[in-house]
Design a protein around this nucleic acid. Structure first.
Lengths: 238, 238
DNA sequence: TCAAAAGTGTTATCATTACACCCATGG
DNA sequence: CCATGGGTGTAATGATAACACTTTTGA
């Protein structure tokens, strides 16, 4: 049953770039192995065609679940890719979505159009289908950008975490190894968005305090800072 | 000459949200009066359908010029709007673009599908077609967000400007009136991205120094600060 | 008692805030 | 000589950076 239009139309797809963290010093990203042409057998971001009556975000979540089994993810729109030749099947415009998850709390299982779904270390990605290498670059840039002014570490970490884990995450995403421990802790604690929630147990060294991110406190502070920004005028970096 | 596809496809459009500044204490935005149904006669952002062989950004610039005569604008992608019922003609997904211009250096002239093109004060917008009110909200949020960490004032101002003009612009965009003059100036000057380029003439008060934004200096500093950020670890706002 | 990692004290320096004051011009 | 903006001095406070040190655990 064909669909006919007066003017030609691009096809519309969504793609999901899901970053994951599992406590090792490695940032990962979720890929599926394509089960169909084009690029059959190659790795790509989960995604697919948008249905006519569904929201873009809904389409992204649906495709993500269909292809990887992953549910309950907060995604945000990243960018729309529409270069005329990005897909060999013809003009395909893709709206990319972006999420950060704790890998242990979001189990995956390949299904459907995908032969397989797997986490890959961001530093050791395989060749990607379509223009997904470019999409990956945009996602990485967004990740670092967000790190600058939003508390995204807490989305990647488990609910309770130590300051060393948090620092390790920051170091990994930023690609450095020598953030000053003293100052990192002072700054984080002074922000006043963490609650102490207990202690590590059964570790072969002094047990670390466990913290949890306090979203309410954070949002209250953001609201207050809004006022500060207004009073100051601006703050642009450098 | 109809076009036929195996599965239904949304139509794809672009919209341009162009903010302008003319030296008064008013931020403006560029609208066109629609010449065709739907919403004929109502005001909307310039925009239209994407051609099959053109880039999204190219489409946005083409529509902008066709409908308003405006050329040589730096646009950036804002967001893609795709709610199923945002357009009465059926499923239409729109990629919105965003720009800041100095109003006096970018003259407009209505043409084509538009009956008219005009600058409107952001504070006194007419009813907008489609979901353009929502798009406007997203654009305003982006504008304030950028103000936080990027020197966007200089895109809106003429090449040479006084610090009072700059402050007035910041106050307008942020919607406040009482940024401390002394501190605003100290901060701006310390950033070291402005060059003194002369003096006001023929004003009925002490003539102000004129400044120009030094993009090279700015980019050098951004690159350096990149390193700082890495050393510090993070910086998220509160 | 040792290794490993957690966690703290302190100081010099720099940025920010808040307030009050002086300056140069055209009319 | 005055109204109108333009422009500056400064002191108290708070944030940041740099470095070295102490503490607590399991093995």
């Amino acid at each position: 049953m064909p669909y006919t239009y007066e003017y030609p139309r691009p096809a519309l797809t969504v793609d999901c770039i899901i970053f994951g963290w599992d406590g090792t010093r490695e940032l990962k990203v979720l890929l599926i192995q394509r089960g169909n042409e084009p690029y059959k057998g190659q790795w790509a971001f989960p995604g697919g065609f948008v249905d006519m009556d569904e929201d873009l975000e809904t389409a992204a979540l649906r495709e993500l679940e269909e292809e990887t089994g992953m549910k309950d993810v907060f995604i945000e729109q990243l960018f729309t890719f529409g270069a005329p030749n990005r897909d060999p099947r013809g003009r395909v415009v893709s709206v990319a979505y972006f999420a950060l998850v704790n890998l242990n709390e979001h189990k995956i299982a390949a299904a459907d159009d995908a032969d397989d779904a797997q986490w890959f270390a961001v530093k050791e990605l395989p060749d990607l289908a379509f223009d997904h290498k470019k999409i990956m670059a945009a996602a990485t840039a967004r990740l670092r950008g967000k790190l600058r002014y939003q508390p995204i570490g807490f989305e990647l970490l488990p609910e309770n975490f130590t300051l060393s884990e948090l620092q390790s995450l920051y170091e990994t995403i930023l690609g450095v190894t020598d953030i000053n421990k003293r100052n990192f802790r002072t700054r984080i604690i002074k922000m006043n968005v963490l609650n102490e929630v207990g202690m590590q147990e059964n570790v072969a060294h002094r047990p670390a305090k466990l913290y949890a991110f306090d979203k309410e406190k954070y949002e209250k502070l953001v609201a207050e800072r809004e006022g500060d920004l207004l009073r100051r005028g601006m703050d642009f970096e450098v």
